[in-house]
């Protein structure tokens, strides 16, 4: 993996391009980063929405991530696969600022972060789901989804209690947007149930809804189909694709089921022991000997094998 010298150039670009400008500019300096991985079908010319540069992360002696380079183009579905403990979740945690990498940077929309500010993540247009369910069990499905818009709320508690100022409007707006998403993901039937009382597969879908309601530009999904039946998986896959198409969202997707991943993603990065061992289109990854040795060969044993 070329740990490129362009990193220096990148620094300049980001230092001199405050957020305001970065959004509006074509960001030509970064297009060289895209060139690192010249494969892929869509939007080769577009500046990447997300770039990881030389990310390294270890826990005590365990190297979770080593020298990871990754670029994600606007509008693509970018899968990350790899065996258990390969560092996939760690990568998403780095992108969402839950972990601070020991080395390297994250570039979101051309802006460089040593650690992505989690508190501002939603404002940056990034939403995510978690490998282990992270719903608010004590809230209804509707309220869970509406909470995905909490970052926008500007009314204060006094206004909300008294029902004055911008609070009633905000409330109406977030509930109606939440309702739309529920309809989109076919969750209207469970709208008023407590999230904690739903079956696992539905909880996963509610979590997707909570992430989608903010119409993020970048959506990070950590094993959204884990533990689902084959039909639930394909349903979820079609929801992910539909979400991408409808909201023009860029998706980073971790998933163990290789069959689902191959069908769903535009490009796949393969991790093994914290290193990226391949990064290409589904067809190329399928035939990559290293990937077969490290992951695919194993996967057909311990996964349900569907679609491989």
């Amino acid at each position: 993996m070329p740990l490129a010298s362009y990193a220096l150039g990148m620094m300049d670009a980001s230092v001199y391009a405050p957020e305001v400008f970065a959004r509006g500019l074509p960001l030509t300096p970064q297009s060289s980063v895209v060139g690192v991985v010249p494969t892929g079908s869509i939007a080769d010319a577009a500046a990447p929405l997300l770039v990881l540069q030389g990310i390294g992360l270890s826990f005590g002696g365990v190297v979770a991530l080593a020298d990871i380079e990754l670029s994600v183009r606007p509008g693509e579905i970018r899968a990350i696969i790899g065996p258990n403990g390969a560092g996939k979740s760690s990568l998403i945690n780095v992108i969402s600022g839950v972990y601070r990498p020991d080395r390297g940077h994250v570039l979101l929309d051309g802006i460089r972060y040593d650690q992505v500010p989690t508190q501002r993540l939603a404002h940056l247009g990034v939403a995510r789901t978690f490998q282990n369910l992270a719903l608010f069990k004590g809230l209804s499905v509707l309220d869970n989804v509406a909470s995905g818009l909490a970052y926008k709320v500007r009314s204060n508690f006094a206004g909300q209690v008294l029902g004055i100022g911008r609070s009633p409007g905000e409330q109406r707006d977030s509930l109606s947007r939440a309702d739309h998403i529920l309809e989109f993901l076919d969750l209207t039937a469970v709208r008023d149930r407590l999230a904690g009382t739903l079956p696992y597969g539905l909880q996963k879908r509610v979590e997707l809804a909570r992430a989608l309601v903010a119409e993020p530009r970048l959506l990070l999904l950590d094993e959204p189909m884990a533990g689902m039946t084959a039909s639930e998986k394909s349903e979820m896959a079609s929801f992910v694709r539909a979400a991408r198409d409808r909201f023009a969202t860029t998706v980073v997707l971790i998933e163990h089921d290789v069959g689902v991943v191959m069908g769903l993603s535009d490009r796949i990065a393969v991790l093994d022991y914290g290193r990226k061992i391949a990064d290409a289109t589904p067809d190329e990854v399928r035939n990559d000997q290293r990937v077969i040795d490290a992951y695919l060969g194993v996967a057909s044993d311990n996964e349900d094998g569907a679609g491989i």
Binding site: Q119, R120, F130, F136, K137, D143, S147, A150, V161
Partner: peptide, 24 residues
């Protein structure tokens, strides 16, 4: 209210609450 739901969100999953932009 929204604030009350933020309370519950922080109680049920603080990390998720922070991620969706609740000022924890």
């Amino acid at each position: 209210s929204q604030t009350g739901r933020n309370f519950i969100a922080i109680r049920d999953n603080e990390t998720a609450a922070r991620i969706i932009g609740i000022p924890v």
